[in-house]
Design a protein around this nucleic acid. Structure first.
Length: 872
DNA sequence: CGATCCCGCCACATT
DNA sequence: AATGTGGCGGGATCG
């Protein structure tokens, strides 16, 4: 070939035409051989542009090979690239003027024009997002570099990231083949799964986390566990063997880093990751020492990666405002549901950001949060991840501790809450025309198909436990024995149905149980479910609440139609609720492994299976009672409570419960990142009207919610019983706190504790004392929540340890009286309310019990009741 | 002045 | 040894 080329080439030297040529090129190079074009040397040509860059381009153009290819390409491709022309590229600039003239500034492409993001867009514009299977496109680095007028080095940056997502793969030296986005969703799913393994807990912790160290510790642990698996997953696409051998090579770090970065998004409930957090997480070494510079470098790399991902329409830049100020962060706007299943979920293409943004704005509860945040911060302690170790400390729950450290850790969690400002900055960037529709950033990725979701649950159920389970188990051995949900459940409530939620992160229960329609989504065990859910569920509680109130409520009202409700919910919030589900197969192993254990996944799974449809299932359940937390009370409690207090755990429910015979429905909302630790359960039962009312009337929440720490949920089975509550006279402080603690703290723990929510029932288990809960955790997580919530949260956390430790006695009353409840509630079985714990007056009765019979403190069972009644 | 991140040196890997 | 890759971080720009 070369010869060939030369012959021609020599003669031609099309120096001048440079730009034009460029546009034409395309990936397809017929010839496979990797030709490495020689580096071009520059020729002295005057370029307007960056001097060097232009020169190079020109040179390259001049080179025979290039030309040849170009020609060929041209044939193949008309001008798709035209796009380039559109852009303000440098190329154009070149053209623009007269020659030399302005070398100076004028044309000088500003830095932006040379940005990696823009370059990446140009790069992507050259190839079809969804190439036909038939067409194989090869990419020659040199060629591209010359065409785009940049050094090859820059192309590596792009290609490495693309390679991490399997959009391209390296075939030979200097040659890459273009795959396009066909496998993107699969890749993302894989990453999500891997991410759950690696970072699932971490993230949770992280958010809450105070200490870097701890987190690191945790992280490390995780990696150890999953790393191998993880690797294999990632490598899947490539046949080449090398994969396994993970050599130690440092290389590819950018690729790996890119994958990890993406995982963080996929694992994050809020889908928002701040750079600093990501950097911390991604620094694997013992960073202690190196820190600063290393951190800085890491961040730099992350910018490189972020630019490429932004060009791909997978993320966009936002700013998270925290106490400290605003931090740069990125929000995932790519698909969150993969599984091949429904891609379509997200309707919008990423490009259509405007809408989403608007939504966001609307959605954002952030502001609120922000305000509340501070308080939260203080009070709330976060569950710490590391706690395991730390646990040793008995817990001194001290609320007071402010969390200086929190600030750091907050990140993820915090991120969510705080307001996010989207970047307006490069509008263009995001959506190149050629891109395939990306799921919009709509925040929700709710599944369009409600049905699917529900059903899924059942089926999936089994899966749930797995991934997390492993970790959880490992972490929390305690679970098994004590908590077995089953035990409790059946035993406890004969009549009632229970649901056990395994560790999954979210659950949404909607619909009337009665009907059988119930659907739930279960979360999955930590991993899968959580991930997905997370994605969807990301909304911060506060937000949820509000939203829920608006729309959500109504839907819920329709008890019958859960799906609808869900959707609505989802929609409203940016966040996403996760309705969805379970997913993943791979968990099963775990389940297998832990057959016997109590609540562990397996069981849970079963529980889930329970039929939504068949109401009767004893075990399964449903639960109806709704519980409300009385926000007020809670608040009080919280406040009152001392961190130190060990509350015994008793909870009281505030009271009222829902009378409804029917099983209430709940929505479980995933905690947003910030909130990550909390899960909300909303009862669906209440009438829509109620909901609506609530919204209007109540600023915050009318709906009763139970918040449970996600982590907890994941690990712990949740049981809900329908009936409800009696108001207990709980001790305000202690009880509440206890309850709270349960919920919140859990996450940190690991969650093995089952939670029961029931109307009547009581659980008497005891909770094993779990040392783990830290009193200390920073409050931040709570932040996002309404202030009240926050407080409560704080309290909770603090106490949680306590709670955990103490067995709680629950009181349950049967349903019946729910004084306060808004009318609707009682009346309708359907009504749904959503409340936020803190905010409302609703009564909630919480009860918890915990006991773990078995093991350590870890497992705790609790029962929460919420009455549907609204205070108002 | 902090956030971004371009640029290209340079080490290591391949050929 | 030449060339391919890609880590890395100084320091320029941007906002």
């Amino acid at each position: 070939e070369n010869i060939f080329d030369r012959s021609r080439m020599a003669p031609k030297t099309p120096i001048k035409s440079e730009p034009v040529d460029l546009s034409k090129q395309k990936g397809c190079t017929p010839e496979r051989n990797p030709i490495t074009p020689v580096k071009l040397v520059d020729r002295p040509q005057p370029d307007p542009w960056t001097p060097t860059a232009n020169l190079k381009m020109l040179v390259s153009a001049a080179s025979p090979d290039m030309r040849d290819r170009e020609k060929k390409k041209e044939l193949f491709r008309p001008i798709e690239n035209s796009e380039q022309s559109d852009m303000p590229d440098s190329l154009q600039y070149d053209m623009v003027d007269d020659s030399t003239v302005d070398e100076f500034e004028k044309q000088r492409p500003s830095r932006k024009q040379k940005s990696l993001g823009l370059l990446c867009q140009k790069f992507l514009a050259r190839y079809p997002s969804y190439p036909l299977s038939t067409e194989k496109t090869t990419i020659s680095l040199d060629e591209v570099a010359s065409i785009l007028g940049v050094e090859r080095r820059r192309i590596y940056d792009i290609v490495n990231v693309l390679e991490s997502l399997h959009l391209v793969s390296r075939v030979a030296k200097n040659q890459y083949s273009w795959h396009g986005r066909h496998n993107l969703s699969q890749t993302l799913q894989t990453l999500q799964e891997a991410g759950e393994l690696q970072y699932g807990e971490l993230m949770t912790f992280f958010q809450a986390k105070e200490q870097d160290v701890d987190y690191k510790f945790v992280e490390r642990k995780k990696e150890a566990i999953s790393d191998s698996q993880f690797r294999s997953l990632l490598e899947f696409s490539e046949p080449d063997c090398a994969s396994a051998s993970a050599n130690s090579r440092k290389d590819k770090s950018l690729r790996i880093m890119s994958q990890k970065f993406v995982m963080l998004f996929l694992v994050s409930k809020t889908k928002i990751v701040t750079l600093d957090i990501a950097a911390k997480i991604l620094i694997e070494d013992t960073q202690d020492t190196v820190d600063h510079s290393k951190f800085k470098t890491k961040v730099r790399r992350l910018y490189d990666i972020a630019n490429v991902l932004t060009s791909l329409g997978l993320i966009k830049k936002v700013h998270v405002t925290e106490e400290r100020g605003r931090k740069p962060a990125f929000k995932w706007i790519g698909p969150t549901e993969f599984s091949g299943k429904t891609d379509e979920l997200s309707g919008h293409s990423p490009t259509s950001d405007p809408l989403p943004e608007a939504q966001r704005g609307a959605c954002t509860p952030y502001r609120v949060c922000a305000t509340g945040k501070k308080k939260f911060t203080r009070h709330a302690s976060q569950p710490r991840g590391s706690r395991r170790k730390a646990c040793s400390e008995p817990s001194s729950p001290r609320q007071k501790r402010q969390d200086p450290h929190c600030s750091k850790t907050i990140n993820l969690a915090a991120v969510c809450r705080p307001k996010i400002e989207e970047d307006t900055r490069n509008p263009s960037t995001t959506s190149p025309p050629s891109f395939p529709p990306v799921p919009a950033d709509s925040d929700f990725c709710v599944n369009p198909l409600p049905q699917a979701v529900f059903p899924v649950v059942q089926t999936d159920v089994p899966c749930l436990s797995v991934p997390n389970g492993i970790s959880s188990q490992a972490l929390h051995p305690s679970m098994p024995a004590a908590s077995t949900p089953e035990n409790g459940k059946p035993t406890l409530l004969p009549n009632q149905h229970f649901l056990c939620f395994p560790s999954s992160s979210l659950f949404m229960l909607c619909g009337s149980l009665q009907e059988n329609n119930l659907k739930e989504t279960l979360p999955s065990t930590g991993d899968m479910g959580s991930k997905r859910t997370e994605a969807q569920a990301a909304v911060p509680p506060a937000a949820c609440q509000k939203r829920s109130s608006h729309k959500c409520v109504s839907p819920s009202a329709t008890a019958d139609e859960e799906p609808a409700a869900k959707k609505q919910m989802v929609e409203q919030s940016d966040v996403p609720l996760s309705l969805v589900v379970p997913k993943k197969p791979f968990k099963s192993p775990k389940a297998e492994s832990t057959p016997g254990d109590g609540c562990t996944s397996a069981e849970h799974l079963e529980a889930f299976h329970f039929d939504l449809t068949s109401p009767a299932a004893p075990e399964a359940a449903e639960k109806e009672s709704a519980k409300h937390l009385d926000s007020q009370e809670q608040e009080k409690w919280c406040q009152n409570k001392d961190p130190g207090e060990p509350s015994t755990g008793k909870e009281h429910t505030s009271k009222e419960n829902v009378n409804q015979p029917f099983p209430p429905q709940y929505l479980h909302v995933w905690p947003a990142a910030g909130l990550s630790s909390f899960n909300f359960l909303l009862s669906a039962n209440q009438a829509p009207g109620a909901i609506s009312l609530a919204a209007s009337q109540l600023p915050s929440l009318s709906v009763p919610c139970v918040m449970v720490p996600s982590a907890t949920l994941a690990s712990f089975p949740l049981v809900c019983s329908p009936a409800i509550t009696s108001p207990l006279t709980p001790v305000p402080d202690s009880s509440f706190s206890a309850a709270a603690s349960m919920n919140f703290s859990v996450s940190g723990l690991a969650s093995t504790v089952p939670v029961f929510i029931g109307t009547t029932t009581v659980v008497s288990p005891k909770v094993s004392p779990v040392p783990s809960a830290d009193p200390q955790q920073p409050a931040h997580p709570a932040l996002h929540l309404s202030p009240v919530l926050a407080r409560s949260c704080g309290a909770v956390k603090l106490e949680s340890p306590v709670c955990m430790g103490h067995p709680v006695t629950l009181k349950l009353q049967q349903p019946s009286s729910a004084p306060l409840t808004p009318k609707s509630i009682r009346q309708a079985h359907n009504d749904t309310f959503f409340k936020t714990p803190g905010s409302l007056e609703d009564h909630v009765a919480w009860k918890k019990n915990e006991g773990n019979q078995t093991r350590n403190a870890s497992s705790v069972q609790r029962r929460l009741e919420i009455s549907s009644t609204s205070p108002d």
